[in-house]
Design a binder for these strands. Structure first.
Length: 658
RNA sequence: GGCUCCGUAGCUUAAUGGAUAGAGCAUCUGACUACGGAUCAGAAGGUUAGAGGUUCGAGUCCUCUCGGAGUCACCA
């Protein structure tokens, strides 16, 4: 019966949420397949410099140097040069003052490397100027390589697990951060050459969903999302909230009852107020005295015993939730390859416990409960199986890890889960290591900070949780409002305009969230999140739109770009862009390796900023000469291509006008 | 209390151990008969929580102190 649920959900997610991203990934894969051999059409200038420095130092001072450790940075604006080599580490080897060594190394480099046009030395830094010919060649190669920044397939497979919601209420802001982070990592890893399996674990069973079920059964009067005209996951969530309200009312009534007062008199500690007592007592009350509480436990028991009526209700309500989730995932532009349901996996892990016992990784206490002792690794003892033989959270996770590895055979498994579970994953991974699981060293917890509002942490009980659908609707509303204020006369069709507004609104929201380093907790200011100016997604989209509009002119006017090669005298603003473009592949690689999309976000912003400046200070379509015009157009085109590519890695699409 | 993470301008943030800590928002001043002003230029705003240490060089590494968050369940 569980299988049917899985199938239904999978089908719907591919029919709706999957559609857009499928198209998207098809394009990218097509490009990869076609252009993969040209990944680095010409040698990377930074590694040329590194190699040459290593060779020069070895030759000059008879001391071997690791080329990878030669520090090469792009030269700060106030100095002359494109790249700077840090010479301090070689001063000691040379037994000379840093500046003297820099002079010698600089001379050796210039003699050795034809791309180096000139050099100067400032306070131990060797500043190198790269020849225009190199940059010309670089631009030609890059402009014709749509897969620039993407690595060829490396034949390795990784799994990324993200989102993983409960099925008792709709997605909220916290899920959005998780989803954007997870999605972006899948895109980064694909760009880095991996085959990526996108998964989530749907927490579709347990007390929470039973609460919604009891609530609907008792108070729902047979209403449905369709009959009420409410988005179906919100409909279910509303019954969850109603359950909490009814429980609260029941508890308050009980507190005033004879039974409640008697218990208070009996158990109240000296000096404890009745309020404090009842607050502490709430869980115990729910488990032992509450009518609704006992109905929930009943429901859970019936579910575990496969009671047909309960299972039917469970399926009906979960299907409502999935239908709603699909819409939200669709709006966010994400999809999954493989879904796991907790109802299928919650019993897993018991055979691992047996195995662990036989390997003496686990031990059994007198009451029959099974434990792992991690005190030697700075952790505590943790229970892995209850005394009654039932699983706990970590038992399931061990079982699921093993099952997934058998099924998928990945090299790495990335869990995108908030940092409140750091300890859990440390213990989980350590346990799997000690069990000798072959994939144990490939496990990684991508931990991220919780999202907080300026007023503090979001709390369900205080109604401060920011709903995902509401938030999405809000950014779209702001984008529409802002566009209207601009009062642009636009011939685009209604659907085209709506599509662009959607890209702008979602671009603002996504960029706002993804630009912050994952590890940092995030203060989410709703007003700032919909800003369309400054360090935002739309700022980057705007530079893309400028380029896109110019490229239309190139097409319509049949402007010949081949004259670009005749251009000489590259300007500072152009050089900034070339150096930034050159950096793109290493940024992607680093971001993929560190599982850190914020690196790409900050890179895209910096590139867009350089472009806006370039655009403002130099004429493109009205450039002084034909070669200058062609060169700047080609440069612009390449910037646009890299911006679109980089933002796609963050899940942000580019509008063609705004 | 133990362990982990964080502390950078009023706010949100950036900086493979490298040059004068870089942006955005907010504040103030300029630039449109437009290659699209959702842009650009400029001003002001910093003892990188504090104190030691390692280093030619520390926001970054080490130690301690202070402040904040998370976690330490036979919950998930």
């Amino acid at each position: 019966m569980h299988k049917k649920t899985r199938r239904t959900y999978k089908k719907s997610i591919f029919s709706e949420a999957g559609k857009k991203s499928q198209t998207c990934s098809k394009t990218l894969e097509g490009k990869t397949a076609t252009f993969a051999p040209h990944f680095f059409p010409m040698p990377n200038i930074v590694s040329i410099i590194q190699d040459a420095v290593a060779a020069a130092v070895t030759e000059l001072y008879a001391e071997p140097v690791d080329a990878a450790k030669v520090q090469v940075n792009s030269t700060p604006p106030d100095f002359t040069g494109d790249y700077s080599v840090v010479i301090f580490p070689f001063a000691k080897i040379a037994k000379k003052a840093p500046d003297a060594a820099a002079q010698e190394i600089g001379a050796a480099l210039q003699a050795r490397v034809s791309e180096i046009r000139a050099f100067n030395v400032v306070k131990g830094f060797l500043n190198l100027e790269i020849s225009d010919a190199y940059w010309q060649q670089f631009l030609q190669d890059t402009a014709s390589d749509p897969s620039f920044g993407r690595q060829p397939k490396n034949g390795k497979k990784v799994m990324v697990e993200f989102s993983s919601p409960n099925t008792n209420k709709p997605l909220h802001l916290g899920h959005i951060r998780n989803i954007l982070l997870g999605w972006s990592c899948t895109q980064l890893l694909e760009a880095a050459g991996y085959e990526v399996v996108k998964t989530q674990i749907i927490n579709d069973r347990g007390v929470a969903i039973c609460k919604s079920m009891v609530s609907w059964k008792n108070f729902g009067e047979g209403k449905t999302p369709a009959s009420e005209g409410i988005k179906s996951d919100h409909f279910v969530g509303d019954y969850y909230v109603l359950f909490e309200q009814k429980t609260k009312a029941e508890y308050e009534a009980w507190q005033q009852s004879e039974a409640g007062q008697a218990l208070l008199a009996e158990k109240q500690k000296p000096g404890q107020t009745p309020e404090a007592f009842f607050k502490d007592f709430k869980n115990k009350w729910f488990n032992e005295y509450s009518q609704l509480g006992s109905e929930v436990r009943d429901m859970l028991l019936k579910w575990e015993n496969h009671d047909p009526e309960t299972i039917a209700l469970w399926k009906k309500m979960n299907d409502w939730v999935y239908e709603g989730f699909d819409k939200t995932y669709n709006a966010l532009g994400v999809s999954f390859d493989k879904l796991y349901y907790e109802s299928d996996t919650y019993l897993l892990g018991k055979d691992i416990v047996e195995e662990g016992l036989s390997k003496n990784v686990f031990f059994k206490k007198e009451d029959g409960s099974v434990w792992i002792d991690l005190t030697d690794a700075g952790h505590d003892q943790k229970v892995v199986l209850r005394a009654d033989g039932t699983s706990v959270y970590i038992t399931q996770d061990m079982g699921t890890a093993q099952m997934r590895h058998r099924e998928l055979g990945c090299e790495r498994y990335i869990y995108v889960v908030a940092d409140e579970q750091n300890y859990h994953f440390q213990v989980l991974f350590e346990a799997l290591k000690r069990l000798g699981e072959p994939y144990a060293n490939g496990l990684y917890h991508l931990s991220y900070g919780l999202v907080e509002l300026p007023t503090g942490r979001m709390k369900t009980r205080e109604g401060t949780v920011v709903d995902a659908d509401d938030l999405i609707a809000e950014v779209l509303r702001i984008a529409t409002e802002q566009a209207a204020e601009r009062n642009e006369i636009d011939n685009a069709s209604q659907t085209e305009q709506a599509e662009n507004l959607r890209k702008i609104g979602m671009g603002a929201l996504k960029f706002f969230i993804i630009k912050v380093h994952p590890r940092k907790k995030m203060i989410f200011n709703p007003e700032e999140s919909v800003d369309l100016q400054g360090q935002t997604g739309p700022y980057i989209q705007y530079s893309y739109v400028r380029i896109h509009r110019m490229m239309l002119r190139v097409q319509n006017d049949h402007i010949d770009l081949s004259k670009a090669v005749e251009y000489s005298g590259i300007q500072a603003q152009e050089k900034d862009l070339l150096v930034a473009l050159h950096q793109y592949p290493s940024v992607v690689e680093e971001a993929a390796q560190a599982y850190d999309p914020s690196l790409v976000a900050n890179y895209c912003y910096a590139l867009a900023k350089s472009y806006h400046r370039f655009y403002h200070e130099l004429s493109v379509l009205n450039a002084e000469t034909e070669p200058a015009k062609a060169f700047r157009l080609q440069l612009s085109q390449t910037v646009g291509q890299v911006l679109a590519s980089g933002m796609a890695l963050l899940g942000v699409e580019m509008p063609d006008r705004m």
